[in-house]
Amino acid sequence: MAVIHEILKEELERLYELQELYKNKIKDLSRGSVQEKDRNGKLYSYIAYRSGDSVKYEYIGKSSSDRAAQVKDQIKKRKEFELKLKQVRKDIKEIEKALK
């Protein structure tokens, strides 16, 4: 059992490191989600994000622009990191419980 205990401790350290990594990566990426609005037949992109009780919109540019593609990509990556962070936090909880 001592081996399992040590493996769990090592795994916990690995997960703490990952938690920090994902938090830092998320910090560097755009938050919110991209929304498109149709104006006179042309699509324009906005970042929508929650600020207190209200939702704010920040103009990005034409949906076909490089900037819009870049922001969409960043938000997609951010969501992937958020999912990974969620998984890591869940695993940390389980291991901490097992090590008690």
């Binding site: 997960l15 990952l18 990594l21 990566k25 992937e80 990191f81 990974k84 998984q87 890591v88 695993d91």
Partner: peptide, 22 residues
Amino acid sequence: QSFDLKFDYNTGYVKYVNPALT
């Protein structure tokens, strides 16, 4: 395969990390 690169600035070593495996 959904791994992210983790670069150690002190040693220069690279790890490929995922919640399930490194």
